[in-house]
Amino acid sequence: MLFHLSIAARNPRHVAQVLAEFWRGEAFPFPPVAQGSWIAVAGDERGTAIEVYPLGTVLREAEGDADSFGEATQQNGYTATHAALATTLSQAEVMAIASREGWPAKYRKRGGTFGVIELWIEGRQMVELLTQEMQAEYLASATIDNFRAMMRGMSGDG
């Protein structure tokens, strides 16, 4: 179960506000880790949230009995980090928001088993948005047995 994750963005406030919109949640300033950070809060029973740091921020381990902290760097390209997020919005509503923002988005079928809307925040950070129908497909396919079968198929041990 995922409670929260963090990403970096050129405009953390705006990105957090748009992410919160997908959840019908709310965005707030979030300075504990790095100045200029924001957080998108879903308002669900799990406390789901995405922290959005200024682009170039990296997390570093703090010495001794202290929390990790954000450090500004010049890193600003693509990242391997992504998340699959549930939304109560329809595919048309998600696409309308993506279009409004100028963020690339398209429907994709992952492995022929479940659909996602592949959305590129600010054109550089991918998230997969799953409508209610897509969530049902995902939950039906994301089982331990199915992962085992997929890995066997990829390793040639069929």
Score class of each variant (00 low, 15 high):
A62V: 04
S68I: 06
E26I: 13
K106R: 15
W38L: 06
Q74R: 14
R46W: 14
W23N: 03
E101L: 03
E51K: 01
V52N: 01
R24L: 09
G56L: 05
T79C: 04
E61D: 15
D44C: 02
V52T: 09
G102P: 00
E61L: 09
R46L: 11
G102C: 11
A92R: 14
E61R: 15
A86N: 07
E101P: 00
G64D: 13
D44R: 01
S68A: 14
L85N: 07
S99C: 10
A49I: 14
A98Y: 04
I39F: 06
A40Q: 10
K106N: 14
P54V: 07
G102S: 09
G102I: 12
V58K: 10
E93Y: 01
V33R: 03
G47A: 10
T48W: 08
G56D: 08
A34K: 08
A62N: 13
T87M: 05
P31M: 02
A40E: 07
T79I: 13
G47K: 04
W103V: 10
A62C: 01
V58R: 13
Q91N: 04
G64I: 00
G25Q: 01
H82G: 07
K109Q: 10
E101Q: 15
E26T: 05
P31R: 12
T73R: 05
L89H: 06
I97N: 06
G25S: 01
A80C: 10
E101C: 13
G25V: 03
R60K: 15
Q75E: 02
A27N: 04
A34S: 15
E45H: 13
S90N: 08
V41Y: 04
R46K: 15
H82D: 02
E45Y: 06
Y53N: 12
A40W: 06
Y107L: 08
T73S: 01
G43H: 03
R100T: 04
A34G: 03
G36Q: 09
G77S: 04
E51T: 14
A49G: 12
G25Y: 06
V41C: 12
L89T: 00
G47C: 03
P29L: 06
F30V: 04
G70I: 09
A66C: 01
P31G: 11
G36L: 12
Y107W: 03
E63C: 00
S68F: 12
I39R: 02
T81M: 13
H82F: 15
G56T: 02
V58T: 12
E61P: 04
Q35S: 13
A96N: 08
A27C: 08
A84D: 12
W103P: 01
A105Q: 11
S68L: 03
K109R: 15
P29Y: 07
F28C: 02
A49C: 15
W23H: 11
V94E: 05
G102N: 07
W38R: 05
E101Y: 01
R46P: 02
A66D: 11
F28E: 11
F28S: 07
A83F: 07
G25I: 00
